[in-house]
């Protein structure tokens, strides 16, 4: 065992990278679920975002344009879900699952000619002097911009949900859509907008994997992160800061366990491999021992006549 082989600064820096796709997808889904909609299509929207972002940034040569395209791609796919569940009043669970399957297939089709291509690289933040500060520099000031967007988004979502009128309306729709409707709010419009936001976030998270974290296009490359994001929202009791904590815990322990394995620590590998799931769930379950609960209208179909 040689723990000195692990450089804690590099470790923390790479755990932040590992956590970001999960954080982005989960924060988007959190907003969707707070509006009372359960969209199981996160995985599908992520993978479509991954290929949309990849394809566009390869074609234009600009990762930033690619990231915007990924958000549009994810949002477009979620629009399909919005149409099915909000206008055709289809079952949300089935529609969400279908969205994931459709997204996986569609992305494979879109990505046919992009296998093996290298995307343009995203410039990392490089502030003179500050980025060079030992320890703090590499951890806090030398990442790609999307990582900061992820954290900022978390703060914004928290603030909007808690303090703004928009957030109040969104929560009202999620808690009791009939009451919100009776008060004169347009339930369907709020939900469609929330679904679009969730799609854009998932798309951005997917593109983060294909453009920055890996970076390349491979079919099925999100490999289940969308499902973990879904679980994370539940275990985080629909609270933004807990989503942030959960994502960093999960991403962090994942990276940490790989490093521990490489360093040859004497813990059986099986335990290390399951530790990210176990510890994340444990911590979040313990934290949610308070009164937090799911939005009351979560997953229920709304129709103005009812």
């Amino acid at each position: 065992m040689d723990l000195s082989a692990i450089n804690p600064v590099l470790l923390i820096a790479s755990l932040m990278v590992a956590a970001t796709p999960l954080l982005l997808a989960a924060i988007g889904e959190l907003v969707v679920e707070r509006a009372g909609v359960l969209n199981l299509g996160v995985e599908g929207m992520m993978i479509v975002g991954a290929i949309s972002g990849f394809a566009i940034s390869v074609e234009t040569g600009s990762p930033m344009v690619g990231l915007v395209a990924a958000m549009i791609g994810g949002a477009l796919l979620s629009l399909l879900f919005a149409f099915l569940t909000q206008f055709a009043l289809a079952n949300q669970v089935a529609s969400g699952l279908a969205l994931t399957l459709f997204g996986l297939g569609l992305s494979a089709l879109m990505g046919q000619s992009y296998v093996g291509i290298k995307p343009p690289t995203m410039a990392k933040l490089d502030i003179p002097v500050i980025s060079d500060i030992p320890v703090i520099g590499p951890i806090l000031f030398s990442h790609d911009p999307v990582l900061y967007i992820g954290v900022a988004l978390c703060a914004v979502v928290w603030a909007v949900l808690k303090y703004s009128r928009v957030g109040l309306v969104l929560r009202a729709v999620g808690e009791n859509h009939d009451a919100a409707h009776a008060l004169g709010y347009n339930v369907v419009r709020v939900r469609v907008l929330a679904i679009l936001f969730g799609g854009a976030c998932a798309g951005l998270g997917g593109a983060y994997i294909s453009l920055i974290r890996v970076p390349q296009w491979t079919e099925g490359m999100t490999a289940g992160i969308g499902w973990i994001a879904l679980a994370l929202v539940v275990f985080a009791s629909w609270k933004p800061w807990r989503v942030l904590l959960g994502a960093y815990l999960f991403g962090g322990i994942n990276v940490l366990q790989l490093n521990l394995q490489a360093a040859g620590i004497a813990i059986p590998v099986e335990y290390l491999a399951m530790s990210p799931y176990l510890i994340t769930i444990l911590v979040l379950v313990i934290m949610s021992a308070d009164k937090s609960r799911a939005p009351a209208s979560l997953g229920r179909i709304f129709h103005a006549s009812g």
Binding site: S14, P21, V214, M221, A223, N254
Partner: peptide, 8 residues
Amino acid sequence: FDPAKEAD
């Protein structure tokens, strides 16, 4: 097969 994990 898990590109993100393999990269990590």
